[in-house]
Computed example of a mutant assay.
Amino acid sequence: MPGIDIVTACALVGHIGDIQRFFNGDKLANYAGVAPLRFSSAGKGKDLQNKSQGNRKLYSTLYFLAIQQIYLTNKGEPRNPVFRAYFERKVSEGKTKIQALICIMRKLIKIIYSMMKHKTAYDLPKIEEKMASDEKCAKMLV
């Protein structure tokens, strides 16, 4: 995965430990402090960031990894175009940049959990946004 080197991978494995102790990716997200906490009473409530629970070292590793995923190179190209597009979409939806980073961290947790659970490598997905936007323009002209 772009942005993960030997040191970051060792930190992730060291903080997570045995992946078999987590039933699913949501449990790992809760352990990392990325899952929101629900505070409610009488059917009313809101979700808040989990600041007091979780492994703070794992959280900080994921935070810096999320920054690396949306990072633009010197040429102005995103390191990971999929996460950069996701980040820009979340910001355009009205989320703050920190909230968008937390969304990326949550996606990273799911990917890392799946990779560790199934012992697979990361394949960078391809974006087909341009083709989709070209089809929208063609439909508008008709």
Results as ranks from 00 to 15, higher is better:
T73W: 00
N74G: 13
N74R: 09
K75T: 13
G76R: 05
P78Y: 03
R79H: 11
R79F: 06
N80C: 14
N80W: 14
V82K: 12
F83A: 13
R84P: 00
R84A: 08
A85E: 12
Y86T: 11
F87H: 08
E88Q: 13
K90M: 14
K90R: 15
K90V: 09
V91E: 06
E93P: 04
E93F: 06
K95H: 12
K95G: 02
T96W: 00
T96P: 01
I98L: 13
I98S: 04
A100G: 02
C103F: 01
M105C: 03
M105P: 03
K107I: 08
L108H: 00
L108E: 07
I109H: 01
I109P: 00
I109N: 04
K110T: 01
I111M: 05
I112Y: 02
I112G: 00
Y113M: 03
M115V: 05
M116F: 04
K117Q: 09
K117Y: 03
K117A: 05
H118A: 06
K119I: 14
K119Q: 13
K119T: 10
T120L: 08
T120N: 07
T120W: 03
A121L: 14
D123S: 14
D123I: 15
L124A: 12
L124C: 08
L124G: 03
L124Q: 15
P125D: 07
P125R: 11
P125T: 12
K126D: 09
I127Q: 09
I127A: 07
I127D: 06
